[in-house]
Computed example of a mutant assay.
Amino acid sequence: MSNKIRWGVLGGGGDSLIGVLHRVAASMFDAYQLVGGSFNPDIEVSKDFATQIGIPTDRIYKDLTELVQKETALPADQRMQVVSILTPNFLHFPMAKQLLEAGFNVICEKPMTMTHAEALELEAIQKKNGNVFGLTHTYTGYPMVRQMREMIANGELGEIQKVDAQYYQGWINNLIHDKEQRNSTWRLMPEKSGISCCLGDIGVHAYQMLEFVTGKKIKSVLADLNHLYEDNEMDIDGTVLLRLDEYTKGVLRSSQIATGEENNFTVAIYGTKAGLKWEQENPNYLYLLEDGQPMRVLKPGHAYNSALSLDGTKLPPGHPEGIFDAMGNIYKGVAKVIRGEDYNSGEFPGMTDGVRGMNFIEKAVQSHRDGNVWVNL
């Protein structure tokens, strides 16, 4: 019998990019076997898709309720061990709640929920039942992001005094200037996307990344958001000032109307000894800055990197690794915990990241609505 982790998927069917990303990532270390799920609200479409990707249709379900009922009726050594949620935002909370209460481990796309209150409710369920919960802040899986985290934790930058994160895209330009389109896309519908579009979609990645690499918690925020049109309820651009403590401050900039930008996510951390910079569009380069010294470029796969970075490196030096590899590292970390193996807390984001992310989104929106004031997290 296969010793692979039995894996189910909700959503991610058809030509879904996120579905492909998760399936490739789960296959990387031969740790998972996709055994079923519900890829589409139409069960016949789900079954057709299952046939296309080469998995049996006997465990393709019409909805999550049927999945839970039939999977929990199976012997423990046959039922799904973990289920990934790849659906639109508004389904994340009810699906995660039902799965956690039924005893399943969960891997969830972000944002984890629609509200901070929902996130706290999930956290309470997970603590009670002891489920494994992975949140796919994918960029934390890059080897050089992990290297940045370890170098900062080891004190190589000294005391952190400035943080800067930028996440710029331009894709929403294609629809925001058309009244009919901006009022019909789910990304700009609060009932489906939550109270924020830009911060909820990409700004929360930058927020989570800053806390992930520095090991510090952001204490308060001051936000200035842009909706661009009066009939658009959702932010599509924003700048957020950050306070981590009395002497550590920074800025988070996110935009979906940065014309011509693709996925320009950059992170810079400056300490009393040195600084580090990383760019998602060139993820194999980590720039080390020191006063009076030439800039150094650190790359994955070399022995000078940390154990956490090397564990997430699949190829010899000089061979580029990308977004699929980063997601694969998150799935690898979740697999270690499900199997009861030793793991580093930096191997995958989890429930705490989701709770803090939702709190950040709500407090940043509150800061803007209250007249651009400081709000404590």
Rank of each mutant, 00 (worst) to 15 (best):
P41M: 06
D42Y: 03
I43H: 02
I43E: 10
I43K: 12
V45W: 04
V45Y: 06
V45M: 12
V45I: 15
S46M: 01
S46V: 07
K47A: 07
K47Q: 14
K47S: 02
K47W: 05
D48V: 11
F49L: 01
A50T: 11
A50G: 10
T51S: 13
G54F: 00
G54H: 00
G54M: 03
I55L: 05
P56G: 05
P56R: 13
P56F: 10
T57V: 14
D58C: 06
D58I: 08
R59F: 01
I60Q: 06
I60G: 08
I60D: 07
Y61V: 02
Y61N: 05
Y61M: 03
K62Y: 02
K62E: 12
K62N: 02
D63W: 00
D63S: 09
D63V: 06
L64P: 00
L64R: 08
L64V: 12
L64E: 12
T65Y: 07
E66L: 09
E66K: 13
E66I: 11
L67H: 09
L67A: 12
V68G: 05
K70G: 01
E71L: 08
E71Q: 14
E71V: 03
E71P: 06
T72L: 12
L74E: 11
L74T: 03
P75W: 11
P75S: 00
P75V: 05
P75K: 09
A76T: 12
D77R: 01
R79D: 02
R79Q: 14
Q81P: 06
V82L: 03
V82D: 03
V82W: 02
V82S: 10
V82F: 03
V83Y: 07
V83S: 04
S84T: 15
S84N: 12
S84F: 01
I85R: 08
I85E: 00
I85C: 04
I85K: 01
T87A: 11
P88M: 02
N89C: 11
N89K: 04
F90R: 09
F90P: 00
L91K: 12
H92Q: 01
H92E: 01
H92V: 10
F93T: 04
P94M: 09
P94L: 07
M95K: 01
M95W: 09
A96L: 09
A96M: 12
K97M: 13
K97S: 14
Q98G: 02
